[in-house]
């Protein structure tokens, strides 16, 4: 119909050309759809498989006919995995811990980023080069001194003066990470400082000048005017800080290997699941756990660990993608 209409008004070669571009356009959107659908599938396929594993009954393990949807449903896997992971206490712990670290990092990195973006002082460029250095040096280089430092924590011998004790052991408490992130030296802090600096450099200077003339001090200007305007980098940094802390195994295994954090629980889940399942066959003390069953429990546990993140992501992803675009990571 569209074609017939065009035929009346336009010469033939023009029509042919239009037809060609139009069909090429359709072809491209079809090709694009296939590509995007394919890549999306690769991304969500493991999650779908894990869900399918989590609701699958033991007797379906060796059933070859099953593709994704099991024949016999059960909640046993989820119950066992929750039991092994000590799920709800660990989850509350991890979320609280990640949230505290997130706020501390966002605060300290925003301060540093603003300082680097807006003020001139001697050695600023050298100091900022050092920030970049903290991004580039692998954290493993600092692992041993850091561990010893927090194992024998003593700030300039002040503690010794106050309490008389030699030093205190902060390993297996939350303090090492808290100290690190409060001083903007935690996990990937350099990157966050960089993000804030890029954003603040892009904001107009006139706002601060107006605030200065109205009699606001430096910190007042920052907290009442600059920070409320810095929502995009704040969202980005807070999301990154939360998620990366939630998933982190480096600091967790270095400083807090005995604590009840989800990432540590997950890392030791396969071994624990093995023991747990062997204990389930009470009548046969020598029986070994079925590896397929263990794998099922492990998959369920991993799913349980990532589900809170996925739910959170569903709510914030819109802001996240938008704010990345406005953050000016690109400078």
């Amino acid at each position: 119909m569209q074609v017939g209409k065009l035929q009346r008004f336009r010469p033939d070669e023009n029509l042919l050309y239009r037809w060609k571009t139009k069909s090429l356009g359709y072809l491209w959107s079809f090709g694009r759809f296939i590509l995007i659908a394919g890549i999306s599938f690769v991304i969500i396929q493991p999650i779908i498989m894990k869900i399918s594993m989590a609701i699958k009954d033991k007797q379906d393990i060796l059933n070859r006919m099953i593709f994704i949807i099991p024949e016999n449903f059960t909640l046993d896997n989820i119950r066992h995995a929750m039991d092994i992971l000590n799920y709800f206490p660990s989850l509350t712990n991890t979320v609280l811990y990640s949230a505290i670290i997130m706020f501390l990092q966002a605060a300290s990195c925003a301060l540093a980023g603003y300082g680097f973006a807006r003020f001139d002082f001697k050695g600023k460029n050298v100091l900022f080069a050092l920030v970049i250095l903290t991004i580039l040096v692998p954290p493993q280089t600092l692992m041993v001194p850091m561990y010893l430092y927090f194992r024998n924590f003593d700030l300039f011998g002040i503690l010794k003066l106050l309490t008389g004790k030699e030093s205190i052991n902060l390993i297996n408490t939350y303090w090492p990470s808290i100290v690190l992130s409060a001083t903007a030296n935690g996990l990937k802090s350099g990157l966050y400082i960089y993000i804030f600096r890029q954003f603040f450099r892009g904001t107009p200077k006139e706002i601060e000048e107006a605030a200065l003339i109205d009699g606001a001090g430096g910190f007042q200007t920052f907290f009442r005017i600059m920070l409320p305007n810095a929502i995009p980098p704040l969202v980005t940094v807070m999301l990154f800080a939360f998620v990366w802390q939630y998933n982190d195994t480096y600091f967790a295994s270095l400083f807090m290997s005995q604590t009840n954090l989800l990432s540590i629980q997950i890392a030791s889940l396969p071994a624990n699941a093995n023991v747990y399942i062997s204990l389930m066959y009470e009548q046969m003390p020598d029986a070994k756990a079925d590896p397929n069953h263990v794998a099922m429990i492990v998959d369920t546990g991993i799913l349980l660990a990532i589900i809170p993140l996925i739910i959170m992501y569903l709510f914030v992803q819109r802001y996240f993608v938008e704010s990345i675009e406005r953050t000016g990571v690109i400078g």
């Binding site: 195994t249 890392a267 794998a295 492990v298 991993i302 992501y313």
Partner: peptide, 26 residues
């Protein structure tokens, strides 16, 4: 877009470790 950035959220050393350990076990 939301799907493409999902790996940023889910990239976790712990999970990779657990998955590999599960495979070794199997």
């Amino acid at each position: 877009r939301a799907l493409f950035f999902l790996p940023v959220i889910l990239a976790s050393g712990a999970i990779a470790q657990a998955e590999l350990a599960g495979l070794i076990n199997m």
